[in-house]
Amino acid sequence: MLLKQVSYWLARIGLAFFISFSVVACGDHSTEVVFGGKTMGTTYNVKYLADSKLDLPSPDEVQKVLDRTLQEVNRQMSTYQKDSEISRFNQLQQADTPFAIAPEFGKVVEEAIRLNQVTEGALDITVGPLVNLWGFGPENRPDKAPTEQEIQDRRTWVGIEKLHLDKQDGQYQLRKSVPNLYIDLSAIAKGFGVDQLASYLDSLHIEHYMVEIGGEVRAKGLNKEGKAWQIAIEKPEFDGSRAVQQIIGLQNMAMATSGDYRNYFEQDGVRFSHEIDPKTGKPIGHNLVSITVLSPSCMTADGLATGLFVLGADKALEIAEKNKLAVYLIIKTNNGFEIKMSSAFKPMLAQ
């Protein structure tokens, strides 16, 4: 996704990236801890204020736990790991055969199914075969766009109604009604990873932190200056340059952005976005270039950002107002970029 805490793809404002942790003394008997690393094909960054009154593990020990947490998310939900739970389910060729999955995996699928309804089918975690066909998944990118017949053939594999999630006594099982059903959680898993890291920091009673994975962010409390965490929404630039469109004061909230101006390919002068509309089987072609969503859960914000982006500006705003969602849209026009936002987002600009 395309939201940046001021140095993921941008030069960061207020967050430097460190592979090893750094510790800076602050006022009010607290210490600022900053560290980061690699995960999910991108980077993660964590920043928190360690109150001296708390009996906290060392920053190195905290990072080790967070790294193990992210490794477990990948073990369950990475389509790039052939032995992950999701990969083994995708490889299963028997229809209507129960496949046991971890509770965390089940909760993510459960939320994805719910958000499919909220976004009127636009967020569809079974769209993976089409994403792969267009060259934006683990399969190698084709030299040219697929044929109409190839698209229609793959569409028979796609549809949330072909995926069944069973839950009993906290245990989850998946079933598929067609052998070639393939699920891809890339639209929601990074957000879930952010929530998992935040949950661990909460368990330590840390009151002030910021967690980011690949641009998806969740923040609690205040930064070391005593202000809401300053998070940047990137201004779309098609020439590869970086610029800030808007700074948001994020406090006790998560934030995720989806856009198509970074990940695409061109053929014969036609630009193909990585965002695939499950209703057509083809890349989206509207003028919405970026949408940012705020939610208490980063998993929810992440999934909504993808689904609403697929729908385009007008429908996204309609759904946002109906469901009281906080969304910020950047729309390309003949005269540059136009900004729109939902009623629930406007109060965030004052922070």
Rank of each mutant, 00 (worst) to 15 (best):
R155I: 09
W229Y: 08
S20P: 02
I331M: 15
V62N: 01
F136R: 03
Q91V: 08
M210W: 01
L15C: 00
E111R: 05
S7R: 00
L54A: 05
A102W: 02
K224F: 00
V217K: 01
K324Y: 08
T257D: 02
A350S: 14
K190P: 13
D153Q: 10
F345W: 06
K82V: 05
D143E: 03
E161S: 14
D184Q: 04
D184T: 01
I247M: 14
S342F: 03
V33Y: 00
A350Q: 14
R12H: 01
N140M: 09
N334C: 02
Q230E: 09
G226T: 13
L222E: 09
G214M: 01
S343K: 14
G27K: 10
R262N: 05
Q230M: 04
D28M: 03
I101R: 01
K144I: 08
Y172D: 13
S295F: 02
I160K: 09
N140K: 15
L2C: 03
G221C: 10
L10Q: 12
D184M: 02
A122E: 05
E212G: 05
S290H: 02
S290Y: 01
A187G: 15
P103Q: 07
E237Y: 07
E150Y: 04
A16H: 07
A198E: 12
Q245C: 06
S343A: 15
D202N: 14
E110I: 03
T42M: 07
D314M: 04
G240W: 05
P146V: 04
L181M: 04
G281I: 02
K340S: 13
Q230A: 08
S273I: 04
V46P: 00
E234F: 06
V217I: 15
V310C: 10
R114L: 13
A16R: 10
V217M: 07
A145G: 09
E216R: 12
D268E: 15
D124K: 06
T69D: 04
V310E: 02
R218P: 01
G191S: 10
W157E: 11
I101A: 06
E85S: 12
G106S: 08
